[in-house]
Each structure stands twice: as C-alpha cells, then as structure tokens.
Design a protein around this nucleic acid. Structure first.
Length: 426
RNA sequence: GGAGAGGUGCCUGAGUGGUUAAAGGAGCAGUUUGCUAAACUGUCACCGGGUAACUGGUGCAUGGGUUCGAAUCCCAUCCUCUCCGCCA
C-alpha cells in the first residue's frame, strides 16, 4: 500500500508510475483518492472540535457534581444532547471516508522503480544478464526426453499416485526423486546460511491479517487455498509467514538488516492458468521452495536487491544451469513490487526457459500495511523496505537438471550436490 | 471436548464511573564527568491544525451498547494461559 502522504506530495510522480503499471485512468484514480482524503481531513477537524467541546462539558459536570451542585450539573447535562448527535454523525461520516480511502489505497499498485522498462507483456521484459552457459546453450539431439518422460523412465516422480490421493498438480516424489529434492533443499539452506541468512521454520497456514500484510489479500484472494472453518490460508510462498513475523514491529537500527531464509511447501490454486505448457513439473498446486527475505533501511534496499540477485546467480552457477535474468516490465511486474528480476533456466529438451526465481524489492509497499518501522538516526519513525526472492523453487530446477544432464546411461548430477544426494547419477 | 483465569505501553504492573496510559524498570538521547558508574532531565503510537514553538482528537484485545463522562458497567467476537480429557 502506498503512503497517502507520498501521493499527496508527489501527485504527478504517482500518476506517471501508475501509468507505467498500466493502471487505467491514473489521473482519475489519484484525483478520486485525494478528494476523499480532503473530505476526510475536513470531517476530522469538525469532529475533533465537537469532541473537544464535549470533553470540556463532561469535565465541568464532574466538577459540579464533586462540588455538590447537583442542579447546575443537571442543567449542563441537558445542553449536551445536541452536541452528542452531532458528534455521532461526524464519527459515522469519518468512518465512511476512512473505509473508502482504505479500499481505494488497497486497489492501487506499487509504483515501479525508474529502471523498470515500459511494456505490456512478457515480451517487453528486458534481458539484463545471460550466463556463459546461456550464451552457449546445450544441444541434446533429437532423442532427448522432456522432464515428464524422464520422470517416468527413471520412476522418480509419480503424478498418477498424486492424482489418486489429492488431485492433479500434487506429485508424489519417490526414491532418488525424493532424495534429490531433499538434497537440493538442504543445499539451498546451507548456502543461505553461509551467505548470512537465519533459517526460519514458519507455519504454513496463515490468518487473514497476514494475507493482507504481504499483499496477497485482497488482490489474489482466489489464488490461495482457504482451509476449513478457521479462515486460514495455505501459504503460496514462505514470504508470507516470514515477512509477517515483523507485522506491527518497530525495529532498532542496529537490528538491521534482517536476513531470513525459510524452506516451506507452497500451495497455489493456479485458477484459470492451466494450458499447453504446464506438463509435468512446470506448474503445480504444491511445490517446495526455499525463500530468502530481507528487511532493510530504505536507502539500502536497492544495493541489497543486487546482492540478492548475485546470490541467486551464484546458486545457479553451482548447479551448472544455463540461466538469464529479465527485468520485468511495468505491465508484467507484480502488484506490490517496485522492481523485480526474474531468473530463468534453460530446459534443454523442452527448449524452453523456465522461471525459477523472482527477486523483488517492495520498498515500503508491504511495510506500510505491516506497520513495520524503525527509528532512524534523527529519531524519526520510518517505514522499512522489504525484499524477497526464491533461492530457489524446486520443481523447475529439478526439471532443468533432469533434462540438461541426461545421457544414454543416466542423468549426471552437478558436483555441488553430490555430498547431499549420496549419489552422482540417476 | 469439559472447567476456570485472563488480555492495559518495549517489559513488569496498579487502576470497580469523574482531569492523568499511575508507578517502577529496560533501551535510547541530553546534561554532568578525566574515564566508567551514579545522578538529573527527556522519551508511547496514530490521525488532524500550524512555517514553527505548540495544539485538538483517538487508542487499555476487537466490534457494538449504556452514560454528560467508560480501562472500569452490559452484549458479542477473537486470542492467551491453567487444570482435566483426548492425542502426534
């Protein structure tokens, strides 16, 4: 959620940013918001005056009662009836304006960073980096198998069993498949720890307030699983619980930056997004992911974003995967992000690029909802910045590893994870 | 699931209708100091008004209600803890 004071003071900048994010009629959106805001403030002033008067009268009644002047107190008491009605009306009016403003603010996306390219579709995303392996893509020959065939051939993941016990999109990992997945998780967690992140094991169900805190609600209501009668949501990413640990928190400057990493399963309904390219591991309702989350001072967040991107790139190099980095354009970047770099690995049998990580800077968009702040050097309360990124999402990494490393005699795993798998080959 | 207790600021914790989020502690800042300690002073958040000093309002789990006036009384909801039961 954008800060109202920012919009008020930077109207043109806001409109420009919203236009880049392809918001329709940004002038109208901002004007409507500011109109409600100005009425709200006007109403608040009137209400404050009425309440101040009423407080004074109450005090007077109290004093008269204490002094034993009961009749005078009674007379003053009668005077307040009109005032009371007025205050009630103003209170209701103010509540209306506040609710309306809140609703409008929730609908407004974050403003994109200046380095975000203009654009509408994924084709408009900007290629910012290609790894050496990406410049020299592996050629597998005509008989190369896509991941869904390899999975069957080596019997490491069973989709039919998943359908039997849960439904499509819930794979069952078996034998070396399960072991490989666990090995990758441990590899990612150990690397993150070496890079300075603290490991967190959060709940994977969260309440409504947490959904609002990180911005999944109300924007993506239908994309999360709602569980039971408790109104709890299955998390779509560890970002949600790990960032919400800091909801309603005022941090001290010396506690910053916060660097957390968490491994969780992630659940996504993916309503309406099933199509031709979602076979096998490409899109799932449940998948595992290791997520890194940082909370920084505002002036450090872009430097941190770069560090996080470098870290993800380092992991992909260790896994010997060809990858590229795309800077998402205004039309493709998510609702709450100011800047987002997508990491894609090349899956050589499908001959497709698969997104395995998004590293985003939310600036103060989440912390404004979370009320996550710190006192800066001058003693002023300031919203912090949040960033997060996958490091990494498992299924597509698995897909690329299987496809790119297939040989007639088996699948050769990258050296970096041998000590975790206990085998070098599937 | 049964019974009970409770939710007040960063923490402890008083407060059963009348100025006040008491009081203490922690942390931080300032003063003092050769240094440290001690002492003293200041220090909750949010929304308004004001260039500013300052000032109005709101907040005692949440939402309603009663009252001139609510932390305090009433209703509903949420959460936590204890004991019993069940149980990974």
């Amino acid at each position: 959620m954008l800060q109202l004071s920012f919009i008020r003071e930077n109207k043109e900048l806001t409109i420009k940013g919203l236009r880049k994010k392809l918001v329709k009629n940004p002038e109208q959106v901002v004007d409507d918001l500011l109109a409600v805001d100005s009425k709200r403030r006007e109403t608040q002033s009137l209400l404050d005056g009425a309440l101040a008067k009423s407080n004074a009268i109450s005090k007077e009644v109290g004093n008269l009662m204490k002094a034993g002047k009961k009749d005078e107190a009674e007379a003053v008491r009668l005077e307040t009836l009109a005032l009371k009605g007025e205050a009630k009306d103003l209170t209701d009016l103010l509540a209306d304006y506040e609710a309306k403003m809140q609703e409008m603010l929730y609908q407004i996306p974050n403003l994109p960073h200046e380095s975000v390219p203009e654009g509408r579709t994924p084709e408009d995303n900007l290629l910012v980096f290609e790894s050496e392996r990406a410049k020299n893509l592996p050629e597998l020959g005509a008989d190369a198998l896509p991941q869904w065939e390899l999975i069957k051939k080596y019997d490491i993941i069973d989709f039919d069993l998943g359908i039997k016990i849960a439904g499509a999109g819930f794979p069952v990992y078996k034998g070396k498949g399960a072991r490989l997945q666990r090995a990758l998780v441990n590899f990612f967690l150990d690397e993150a720890q070496k890079a300075g992140y603290t490991e967190i094991q959060p709940p994977i169900l969260v309440n409504e307030a947490s959904g609002y805190g990180t911005g999944q609600l109300p924007d993506k209501e239908g994309q999360m699983y709602l569980v039971g009668e408790e109104k709890l949501y299955l998390i779509p990413t560890a970002e949600v619980p790990i960032t919400n640990l800091y909801r309603d928190v005022i941090l001290k400057a010396d506690e910053l930056p916060i660097r957390n990493v968490g491994f969780t399963p992630c659940f996504r309904r993916e309503a309406g997004s099933w199509g031709a390219h979602v076979r096998g591991l490409n899109r799932l309702h449940q998948f595992d992911k290791v997520e890194v989350v940082q909370i920084t001072k505002p002036e450090e967040s872009y430097k941190t974003h770069q560090i996080m991107c470098d870290y993800v790139a380092y992991l992909l190099e260790k896994l010997e995967l060809p990858f590229r980095i795309l800077r998402l354009c205004g039309g493709d970047i998510s609702f709450g992000a100011a800047l987002c770099n997508d990491f894609e690995v090349y899956s050589a049998a499908q001959k497709r690029w698969l997104e395995v990580s998004s590293v985003s800077n939310f600036e103060s968009f989440q912390t404004n909802r979370l009320k996550l702040r710190y006192k800066d050097e001058t003693g002023k309360m300031q919203l912090l910045h949040t960033l997060n990124g996958s490091a990494l999402a498992l299924p597509r990494i698995l897909a690329a590893l299987l496809e790119n490393n297939q040989t007639p005699t088996g699948i050769n795993l990258p050296k970096a994870i041998w000590e975790y798998t206990g085998f070098e080959k599937i």
